[in-house]
Amino acid sequence: MTLRFYKNILSVSIITVGLALVGCSNGHTDNNSANTPTSSKPLTSEQKVLLENMTPIDTGVNQAAIAKIPKNYNFVNPGYLTIGTYAGSPPIAVMAPDNKTVIGTEVDIARLIADSLGLKLKVVVSSWEDWPLGISSGKYDAVLANVTVTKDRKEKFDFATYRQDVLGVYVPDNSPVKKIENADDIAGLKIIVGAGTNQEKVLLTWIEDNKKKGLKPAQALYYNDNASASLALQSGRADAILGPNAVYAWQALNGAKIHLAGLIKGGWPRRADIAVTVKKGSGLAEPIQIALHGVIQDGKYAQVLKRWGVQKEAVEDSEVNPPGLGDQ
């Protein structure tokens, strides 16, 4: 999964079912302000959670990781791990209630890596499409932007994994549908999906498979905006929505009347992984992998995933340049 689809998501609230990255931390970033909202308007329940999630989750220095940093590597900003990301939607990344600080899974994990490497964290926010050029040109040391490992990308970049690429199928809380995990489960259902996405490819493949089996046809539904999709799901015009699990897991965690009906591998039928992305041959992938291994072991990694509601996307350990989409 890439974040191509996230680009089309409007500003997210917990009542919006989308079609379908940090924060301030003990001086770890230089682009944040006080943890207070800038508006006098009452905070929504989601904003209150976002405000709480501005509190940093820190970890200690990992000497084993530091020892693997190439002696000749020059960080973009001395003393800092500079990462590229973009503020799209929670829980991947979103503007905090202060309207200045970007928070989310990507920033929290980046902070753990920076802590482990004995560095402060500097975040550069830009459009998602900028990450390949940003790394190649030395704009930042690494990218954490929900980037999926692929065969083609491994030719130009190195990776250290930190989350599974997972698609989620969500249904309304009052739905009679109990599970949607394979093609047979969608027979006769109307499912909202984003056009041109990997999840659309999965859904359309399942629909064709069911036609061959003689099962009742399923229907893919497309909406131009989140509000229409939400209304369709809650009014019964659609039975389910299929998309990046993290988005809907966050919404379900924060009051949306939807729940998980099934998880699908992002590279269906194969597993896919989300990874920290660095310049090919830079030597940073291994120290980052060791740093991630450390925070997985000490529980800080799990703490981050839990507060953003994406525990089901956890990896047992970080890997450098694993098989990706397109690998046989």
Rank of each mutant, 00 (worst) to 15 (best):
M1W: 03
M1E: 08
V12W: 02
T16M: 15
L19D: 04
S25Q: 14
S25G: 15
N31F: 02
A34C: 13
N35H: 06
T38V: 11
S40M: 11
T44D: 03
T44H: 01
S45L: 11
V49N: 09
V49H: 07
L51F: 07
N53T: 05
M54G: 01
T55C: 05
T59G: 12
I69Y: 02
I69F: 03
K71H: 13
N72K: 13
F75T: 02
G79E: 04
L81D: 01
G84T: 00
V94R: 03
M95A: 10
P97N: 02
D98L: 09
D98P: 01
K100P: 00
I103C: 05
I103F: 06
A110L: 05
R111M: 14
G118C: 05
K120E: 05
K120Y: 05
K120C: 07
L121D: 02
W131I: 01
L133R: 08
G134F: 01
S137N: 10
S137H: 04
G138R: 05
D141A: 10
E155N: 12
D158K: 14
F159I: 05
R163A: 11
Q164M: 13
V166M: 15
V166Y: 07
Y170N: 02
V171W: 03
I180Q: 00
N198P: 02
K201G: 12
K201M: 14
V202W: 03
T205E: 05
D209Q: 15
N210C: 10
K212N: 15
K216I: 09
K216T: 14
Q219Y: 12
N226D: 12
A227L: 14
A227T: 12
S230R: 10
Q234G: 12
P244I: 09
A246Q: 06
A252K: 07
G266R: 08
G266W: 04
W268C: 00
R271L: 14
R271F: 11
D273L: 15
A275T: 01
T277K: 06
V278F: 05
Q289S: 13
I290P: 00
L292Y: 06
H293L: 11
V295L: 10
A302W: 01
W308F: 15
A314Q: 10
L325V: 15
D327G: 10
